[in-house]
Design a protein around this nucleic acid. Structure first.
Lengths: 336, 336
DNA sequence: AGCAGTAATGTTAGCGTTCACATTGAGCGC
DNA sequence: GCGCTCAATGTGAACGCTAACATTACTGCT
């Protein structure tokens, strides 16, 4: 009942009348152990309340069972969900995950986050930092262990899982074109983010392909920025009838500005967002958007990483296509 | 340049012409070392690219420098933000944080999450699980290390940091009463959550204190539930003029239902939420709500935990009062 | 019977730290 | 100039495990 001192492998061995190594073998599921001895050892462990020491194991085997996640913007729904599901996937395989939150725009923050993780002796690293620069720094600072990138991309020969943002941008744009819109503006994410440039590229390519002129306004993901752009955007003289906005948060801010200006969505203006935040189904009006499956993204990334660690890796890249969710913020354009 | 093998303490000692123990002392900032030897050792470390082995240190000193966070609903903004700031605070003091996401309604999930963390040999644990039952299980399963509870409460003699939900509920209610409302309904969170019951208690107490009749509808935090309640709530025959809704997500759903029913907020109905999600400033209309400072909450919790670990703890409880943010979803009641 | 082969278990030596104690040498008082 | 103290450093063992090799005891084959 009391806990005078955590039992170790020798205590268990003594009680089970075997050598400590046999105990170790039981611990590691070594096949060459008689079932009968195995149960005896297990019973001994049980009765001593034995808990293997991870530190000792790590020291002896130089396998820490630790994984690192470097994550920026963890407060956002997407990254938080990915991190959460990655942790669950790792834990299911007996790994421990240390998540370090960083400011991806601050090189020193990235570097010190990496250092922190390297001290730990992690066996693998996942980067949930969509900022290209942060990924570069991290990749450079780490050596000897596999690194998987989520929703970003560095080089084709590295492990990476991402949403096909190009396809998403294209689908959003095509949806608007199919409804009959011609004058479609894109509000992008910040520069230096993989998602920004790729969504914008999907938009641009689709516009050009339909012989339409792309018009891009720089945004930065922030809800407030969507609002401010919405407040001052010249809609009438430019005859804009639709926008593809690079994320839902900006879309929400933008639509708020439209309400204030008395511009009806979707009657006068159609809007497509990106992310499918939960609340966009309940916004005014409910937002047409592209859904990303963060759970699947996280799971796949972790499995990629774990299979690379165990040497059973087969592929290096994985890509998910986002799904267009049609709600009531899009309709045919008005006659102008 | 190459990395044939990580240098250890003996390699450093040899190069610096001291004993390995002196190196260890330098590592641990032992005061009784001559500055001159210290620099020599540091130089040797530098030139060998020496990295101390956490595993070895943990084994020898039985201090793992690991902390655990048990977190449910990590996808929500609040918990995610708290976890994020806790991690940062811990890292600043050289600790590593392993966050485990669980389903707080599933006892086995709670238990296995705890087991996972205990295997690691964590030195302290933080519970970001507002469900009372989960906190109980966790507290019972853990022994020998300090545990801090966030935004929940178990017993007064345990470490805990929380928002003063009672005060928040009271402030929300009083705000509506001050505007002249009499018929104020509360939509609560799910049963079994500390925040639910305490916010409801603050509401009820304030209503009774003003000689008004409390009316509570059970909710569950979900945006969809707010919407569904909003769709069917009998507002006219009951002459309801205001609601205090236990969180912003439900409020968002509720207001969406009001828009669909053509009930004007705040002209016909005033609404107060709780949380101050970023997007509530841009909802239609912008929501009056109570702001919680998750950053401060996380920091304080971690500092409480760390001071308890180092034995310098002074207090055990910390409580933050949420701030009423007035926006345009509240106004004086209509004449009925 | 004798010997190889193999399944099951044992023995010894690390892994890279810290801990407890031992040693050295300089400074000081008398 | 002797011993005492204290500051600075050194020595050996311990932490709890795994790796590598060693031993034992069967089995079956000739």
């Amino acid at each position: 009942m009391a806990n005078p001192k955590q039992a170790n492998i020798y205590d268990v061995a003594r009680l089970a009348k075997v050598s400590h190594q046999t105990v170790s073998r039981v611990l590691n599921n070594n096949p060459s152990i008689r079932p009968e001895t195995k149960t005896r050892v297990l019973k001994a462990m049980e009765s001593l309340g034995y808990r293997p020491s991870l530190a000792a194991r790590a020291l002896a085997s130089s396998r820490s069972k630790m994984l690192g996640i470097l994550s920026s913007d963890t407060d956002f729904t997407g990254p938080a969900a990915m991190v959460h599901h990655m942790e669950a996937a790792a834990r299911a395989q007996g790994f421990f995950v240390v998540t370090v939150g960083i400011d991806a725009n601050d090189e020193e923050s990235v570097q010190s986050g990496i250092d922190h993780l390297m001290k730990l002796g992690i066996e693998g690293l996942a980067l949930v930092t969509p900022q290209l620069r942060a990924v570069e720094i991290a990749r450079a600072a780490v050596s000897g262990i596999p690194v998987v990138t989520l929703d970003s991309m560095y080089r084709m020969d590295e492990l990476a899982v991402s949403v096909d943002n190009f396809a998403g941008g294209a689908a959003a744009t095509q949806h608007l074109i199919d409804l009959g819109h011609k004058n479609i503006v894109h509000i992008s994410g910040p520069q230096g983010w993989f998602e920004s440039t790729t969504r914008a590229a999907g938009y641009t390519a689709t516009m050009l392909n339909a012989n339409l002129t792309p018009q891009v306004i720089d945004g930065d993901w922030q809800i407030d920025t969507g609002y401010r752009i919405g407040k001052k955007l010249d809609i009438d003289s430019k005859q804009v009838t639709a926008l593809f906005i690079a994320n839902d948060r900006m879309s929400l801010g933008f639509m708020h500005a439209m309400r204030e200006r008395g511009i009806e969505v979707p009657k006068r203006l159609s809007i497509v967002g990106f992310d499918d935040l939960e609340e966009t189904a309940y916004s005014s009006p409910p937002l047409t958007t592209l859904r990303q499956d963060f759970k699947s993204l996280g799971n796949r990334a972790m499995n990629l990483l774990l299979s690379e660690i165990s040497g059973t890796a087969t592929k290096k890249l994985d890509r998910l296509v986002p799904e267009l969710i049609q709600r009531s913020s899009t309709a045919a354009p008005p006659k102008l």
